[in-house]
Design a protein around this nucleic acid. Structure first.
Length: 1080
RNA sequence: GGGCGAUUAACUCAGCGGCUAGAGUGCUUCCCUUACAAGGAAGAGGUCGCAGGUUCGAAUCCUGCAUCGCCCACCA
């Protein structure tokens, strides 16, 4: 028992994170240590270091994937803060438009409350539905934003919480409005009638990358269309079109044939009468059509009939064909993807009413069945074959996306000023396809200014392979649909008049003049018939007011304009912007853009973006394009800037079945669960140590029985989509509990009898054990250290071999940490500190100095320096425990710097300096000597273990060595004696083997462990050793007998092999001798 | 269809031209030694997915194949 007043009395023998973390977190919060101010850029020698958090969606709480993401950011942030950089980590959350709206709507339905449909009805009836629904979503957002912030704080994330941002708060909204305005003004945003990816459940358009491909088993239907003349008179015969989507035939406006098709091209120029509908449509030629070939490798060629039905309003390819041939696009569906005559089916009056009537209102699946039935009944279904193919699904509602004709807003990202600039921003060594820009030669934009010559790309991906994803995306990019028919999001700041104006021409004239004036003042921007105003509007008297789009720069500030516009009968576009529009501005909007703030000047570009690879196209791309584009117009002297210089892409966490961990799948693990079972530091350390440059890491998840506290592997079931998840309810020893999946999916509700079971994973034992080791090493260290002795030793005491060695190892470890962290090699960093602290410091050094350190000032100093420096280098990964121990050790020791290692005292560890070493800590001689000593100690321990000598029993050892070595052995004897538990007897060049001694050989030295009279054990040991030696001698001889090796391999390697062989042979001889002695 | 990655000990992963291929967990034996049993000492356990090739030398580089995972791609 330590004395009650000993420093260790304050520290219990087992580390309890729950007793430490909240206090430390409070201490940090009260000290405002994480708040940063930009100050003048590059003041003194302080480098800026900034990270913008990838804002988590407010749809749900964070899971382990976020824990990994944020841990890595915090490791970097804390490291740079300690390095003395002007460090700021900006936290925040994302409103996640469609995702959040969907989640909240689903929850409202589950609770039996008024849901989106009801609010929409209210809104249509003139009641305040939109605002009320948004209020519901806002409440959800408030709840989860708080949860997320609590989680970040519990994880120890050292964000500047004073700067907490949200993609829809006012500063961010301001940035969105300004960004939209500038793109609009520059003609990079336009209104287009296009086929969009329509989600019929959410009833909104989706961007291309919000569509997920899934293979489904479908059918190929072969439909006969009767041939006719131009007037519709049947001429006999038919063509057979092949389709997977018969229901869209209602909107067919042509049949296409490949002009090169030898069998079918002759039909070009004829007409068919569309069954059911009666529409007379041409057969035309288009290269797109696949020529049938039953022997082709291409499944489509095998399935093709040669005739393609063309439905421009319901298929993207057909849309293209329609554009080429000037075909009408006839939309036959309502926004919910049911068959409808109300949305563009202009010639429905001509139809066979009897056939069409029953189809109206049918969902597309039912319509498909009905239409196939109709064709079959009318003997027009030629064939039907099974066909597996990819179908795009909404990433939110998971239903097939409907290509749907509608008016939407687009960003012209394919423009050179956006995608081209993003490509040029790539570091030349990461851009494939030569050093020239692959983009601008062929796609040179007439108005794009080329910054090539003076703008060296410096966007780097880590690992570099992800640069390829980025490049490929921008080389094939298509315009980005940014309008969403949602309520939760940034309202599009565009006003227009829905109905033609009827006012007198004079009033109209005045109105136009007013608009043009505002336009000149830069308060609005205008587009007229798709062209940016001002332009030559020659026929003012024929102006169509409904063809004007008026973008108001800052509708919130400029009420005068809004009031006037509304007085004129103009209304704001009801749609909102794609979430990624505001996320794309994140590195700017969080720093105050469009104001030219000190933050923006000091911290943009930010240092690194830390994210997962799934988001490279969705998000990274847009931030790069926006930041480059918007900074080139700003007159702040900074010029065109990237949002960040480095992109670090980390692994995705999978569950024990190799499935991606995600909220929507329901297999996510709450970091709070891990913090509860293992502690935040353990979680962080383990996650850090898992972060290598691979793509994925697997995390088998267990559950904790809330009744007993025991860990067990839950029963898994296959949920929808084939995903393996823990069964919603679990049972152990007759007692029930609810899994987190059960709760998240709403399939089970925790009760007193069946409480929620937390998750855990034994992977975190690594970090928990390490934290405990650190804790105990410090308890012991605090007990051993004596402030007077440490100070008396001074910074440059005469070091014994052990102390010189451990400081040398410390110096190497600090270097390894720096290298690893600068290269984003987190696992390397984690392993380096682990090995130093546990293996070197605890297992060897502290054990070696135990008998002497209480009186030995030099050892006191070395130990103090090691402990102090260890806390500093451990801190980025394990901030809580190190901060707690820091305050304990701060009370015990002062400045413990040693020569070559500066360790300034500091009140809080999170603000303390990172240990700086100049290389003079390294001592190669001490390292070589210690290496030899470790071998001797291990050899003796091995003998002891083989003979079952208990650890406490001191053995007698003699050793024989060539004279020059013997002296060295004498010097290191005291450490070896301590470590191997022996007492040295005789040393010298010629020692008689003591009778009854076991022996072992280390290099030149033969070691005798006295009084181990068990010849059988001895023979076994020596035989085994002999085998090993014989094997490696054979291998070495073989290598040396290969003249290719001796001729071509580096000489030092060959020499090393020779030395090695020599040593092994001598050792073998000694072992043989000993075996011979045993036989006597 | 194009691209990226993985395949190494029972499990989860390092290593990515040259030590007898490592770590954590698990397993075996010994030890509750006055920091730590969430610990200490010793140990067992691997033809590095398969087949070729390059090289004096390959887990590591190249080619092909197999299996698994992810990203991108217009659903006739």
């Amino acid at each position: 028992m330590p004395a009650p007043d000993a420093p260790t009395a304050a520290l219990p023998p087992t580390y309890d994170p729950h007793a430490v973390e909240p206090d430390v977190a409070r201490q940090w919060a009260e000290s405002h240590a994480f708040h940063a101010e930009p100050g003048p850029a590059l003041a003194g020698d302080r480098q800026p270091f900034t990270i913008c958090i990838p804002p988590p969606n407010v749809t749900a709480a964070l899971h382990l994937g976020h824990a990994l993401n944020n841990t890595l950011q915090d490791v970097l942030t804390r490291y740079h803060r300690m390095r003395g950089d002007n460090t700021c980590w900006l936290p925040g959350t994302d409103h996640a438009g469609i995702a959040t709206q969907t989640v909240v709507d689903k929850r409202l339905k589950q609770q039996g409350d008024k849901s989106l449909i009801d609010y929409k009805r209210d809104q249509a009836e003139g009641k305040p539905g939109r605002d009320q629904f948004i209020a519901k979503v806002q409440a959800w957002k408030d709840e989860y934003e708080q949860r997320i912030t609590d989680q970040l704080k519990a994880m120890g994330c050292s964000c500047d919480y004073d700067r907490q941002a949200f993609t829809m708060d006012e500063p961010r909204a301001r940035a969105v409005r300004e960004g939209f305005f500038r793109l609009f003004k520059d003609g990079l945003i336009y209104r287009g009638k296009r086929l969009v990816n329509w989600d019929p459940v959410s009833q909104t358009a989706l961007a291309d990358d919000e569509v997920e491909s899934q293979d489904i088993d479908g059918q190929f239907y072969y439909l006969d269309y009767p041939l006719c003349d131009e007037q519709g008179t049947l001429t006999g015969g038919h063509v057979t079109v092949a389709t997977t989507r018969p229901e869209t035939m209602l909107g067919d406006t042509a049949v296409a044939v490949n002009p090169k098709d030898p069998n079918h091209a002759k039909r070009i120029g004829s007409f068919v009468r569309l069954p059911i509908v009666g529409r007379i449509i041409p057969v035309l030629g288009d290269d797109y059509v696949v020529i049938p070939d039953p022997d082709s490798d291409d499944a489509k060629a095998r399935m093709a009939s040669g005739f393609l039905k063309v439905t421009p309003a319901h298929d993207p390819n057909d849309w293209e064909i329609g554009q080429r041939h000037d075909l009408p696009a006839i939309n036959v569906m309502a926004p919910d993807a049911s068959i409808s005559r109300e949305h563009g089916w202009t010639d429905i009056e001509d139809c066979d009413c009897e056939a069409v009537e029953p189809l109206l209102g049918l969902p597309r699946d039912d319509a498909r069945k009905a239409i196939v039935r109709w064709f079959r009944e009318h003997d027009l279904l030629a064939d039907q074959k099974p066909y597996r193919h990819a179908v795009g699904h909404s990433y939110r509602s998971h239903v097939p996306v409907e290509p749907y004709l509608s008016d939407q807003w687009y960003v012209k990202v394919a423009d050179d000023r956006l995608a081209g600039a993003a490509l040029r921003a790539m570091a030349p060594d990461q851009r494939s396809g030569g050093t020239h820009c692959t983009w601008c030669e062929p796609h040179r934009h007439p108005h794009g200014d080329h910054a090539h010559a003076d703008w060296e790309g410096e966007l780097h991906f880590h690992p570099p392979r992800y640069a390829k994803t980025f490049q490929a995306w921008h080389e094939n990019i298509r315009d980005w649909c940014i309008s969403r028919q949602l309520w939760w999001g940034h309202r599009i700041p565009v006003w227009r008049r829905e109905v033609p104006t009827e006012g007198p021409p004079a009033a109209l004239e005045a109105m136009i003049e007013e608009l043009l004036a505002w336009n000149r003042q830069g308060r609005i921007a205008m587009q007229y018939r798709g062209e940016v105003v001002p332009l030559a509007i020659s026929e003012r008297d024929q102006l169509d007011l409904t063809a004007f789009f008026i973008c108001v720069r800052d509708p919130l500030a400029d009420r005068e304009i809004i009031d006037q516009l509304e007085a004129w009968g103009l209304t704001q576009d009801p749609d909102v912007l794609d979430t990624w529009f505001s996320s794309g501005l994140w590195p700017m909007s969080t720093l105050g853009w469009p104001e030219s703030t000190p933050e923006l000047q000091a911290w943009n570009p930010t240092s690194v973006l830390c994210t997962a690879r799934e988001i490279i196209t969705l998000w990274v791309s847009r931030m790069v394009m926006f930041n480059l584009y918007f900074t080139r117009d700003d007159n702040d002297g900074g010029g065109q800037r990237l949002p960040f210089r480095d992109v670090f892409i980390h692994a995705m966490i999978q569950d024990g079945h190799g499935q991606k961990m995600s909220k929507s799948l329901g297999n996510g693990v709450d970091p709070f669960d891990i913090i509860d079972s293992h502690g935040a530091d353990a979680m962080r350390y383990t996650l850090t140590s898992m972060t290598t440059h691979t793509q994925d890491v697997r995390m088998p998840v267990d559950m904790i029985d809330p009744h007993t506290g025991q860990t067990f592997t839950p029963k898994f079931v296959t949920a929808s989509g084939g995903v393996k998840v823990a069964a919603p309810t679990q049972e152990r020893d007759g007692k029930a509990m609810v899994s987190s999946f059960g709760l998240a999916s709403g399939q089970a509700t925790p009760t007193d009898d069946a409480p929620l079971a937390r998750n855990t994973s034994e992977k975190f034992d690594l970090g928990r054990n390490f934290a405990n080791k650190v804790w105990n090493a410090f308890r012991f260290g605090l007990d051993l250290l004596d402030r007077d002795l440490v100070e008396r030793a001074g910074p440059d005491p005469e070091l014994d071999m052990a102390s010189a060695w451990i400081l040398s190892r410390l110096g190497r470890t600090i270097r390894a940490c720096d290298d690893a962290l600068n290269r984003y090699e987190f696992a390397t960093y984690a392993t380096a500190v682990y090995d130093f602290f546990w293996r070197d410091l605890c297992d060897w050094y502290i054990e070696a100095i135990k008998p002497t350190v209480r009186e030995d000032a030099a050892q006191q100093r070395a130990l103090a320096a090691c402990l102090d420096a260890s806390l500093r280098i451990l801190h980025p990964a394990m901030p809580f425990i190190t901060e707690r121990l820091w305050s304990a050790i701060n009370d015990t020791i002062g400045d413990v710097s040693v020569r070559g290692l500066k360790l300034e005292p500091w009140e809080q560890l999170c603000e303390a300096s990172w240990p700086l070493t100049d290389g003079s800590l390294l001592d190669e001689q001490a390292e070589a000597d210690w290496d030899q000593l470790q071998k001797i100690v291990t050899a003796i321990r091995e003998v002891r273990a083989a003979h079952n000598v208990p650890p406490r029993q001191i053995v007698q050892v003699s050793s024989q060595a060539p004279s020059e070595m013997a002296r060295s052995v004498m010097n290191r004897r005291k450490f070896a004696e301590t470590l191997a538990g022996y007492e040295g007897r005789e040393f010298g060049p010629n020692i008689e083997p003591p009778p009854g001694a076991a022996s072992t050989v280390v290099g030149d030295i033969t070691i005798y462990v006295h009084d181990l009279l068990d010849p059988d054990t001895e023979r076994l040991r020596l035989d085994k050793r002999k085998d090993e030696l014989a094997k490696s001698i054979a291998a070495l001889e073989k290598r040396l007998s290969n003249k290719g090796y001796t001729d071509k391999a580096p000489p030092h390697l060959v020499q090393q092999t020779r030395d090695d062989l020599d040593a092994k042979q001598r050792e073998l001889a000694t072992v043989d001798e000993q075996l011979a002695t045993l036989a006597v």
